[in-house]
Design a protein around this nucleic acid. Structure first.
Lengths: 101, 101
DNA sequence: TAGGGATTTAGGTAAATGCCTAAATTTGAT
DNA sequence: ATCAAATTTAGGCATTTACCTAAATCCCTA
């Protein structure tokens, strides 16, 4: 894990929010959008963009950045790309800060 | 603690390095510079700037930013400003990431 | 109170980041 | 093969960040 890239990828309020939203999608996204939600997939790009009130392209690259930093896991299914949190990597980051930083 | 400001303040390789150096000054700074080192004070601006191979003004504002984010503690003594880590805040950050992020 | 060392503040430029719209691509369904 | 929906890629502009040098300030000591 590249500590600096991970840190950069969460040094933005929107990206930080996305991480929070994905922690508990039912608490943050309209239920109808989660009709066929599955924890193994996560939430799709456009739903996240709508929640963020930001353009889809912007959010698309944010998500891509975060998955490049290994904080999110992307799954393409049909024409949708779903993103979910990578809990292991997040815990690993906390651990790294705790003992190595 | 403002999570975002803290994260921003460590989203830079040099500032990340400084945090590492201050964790164990004797391992990273020339011993003669630490002649009157005391853990309660830390290391002064110009020694840190020299170690970073960066201009003093740049490092001065980096350090100030980090202490504004509460990651460092500054102590002015005579004409020197010493900086040391704020271990509590760093642990708090790790904790915050672990359970709230 | 003048001089000098350490630091901070100001001011500037280049690079990176934040976001957008438009265009291109992917993929399922007629 | 074609259309439409979702996403990604490209390109662009505004703001922030990363540094620097020069000037100002702080604080000692003569």
């Amino acid at each position: 894990m590249k500590m600096l890239d991970v840190l950069k990828s969460i040094s933005n309020q929107t990206r930080l929010n996305i991480l929070t939203w994905l922690k508990d999608p039912f608490a943050y996204f309209p239920n109808e959008e989660l009709a066929d939600y599955s924890p193994s997939l996560g939430v799709c790009v456009s739903d996240i963009a709508k929640k963020a009130k930001m353009s889809i392209p912007t959010v698309s690259v944010y998500l891509k950045t975060m998955s490049a930093a290994d904080l999110l896991v992307a799954t393409r299914k049909d024409q949708w790309t779903y993103y979910k949190r990578n809990e292991e990597a997040i815990q690993e980051l906390a651990q790294l800060i705790k003992e190595k930083l």
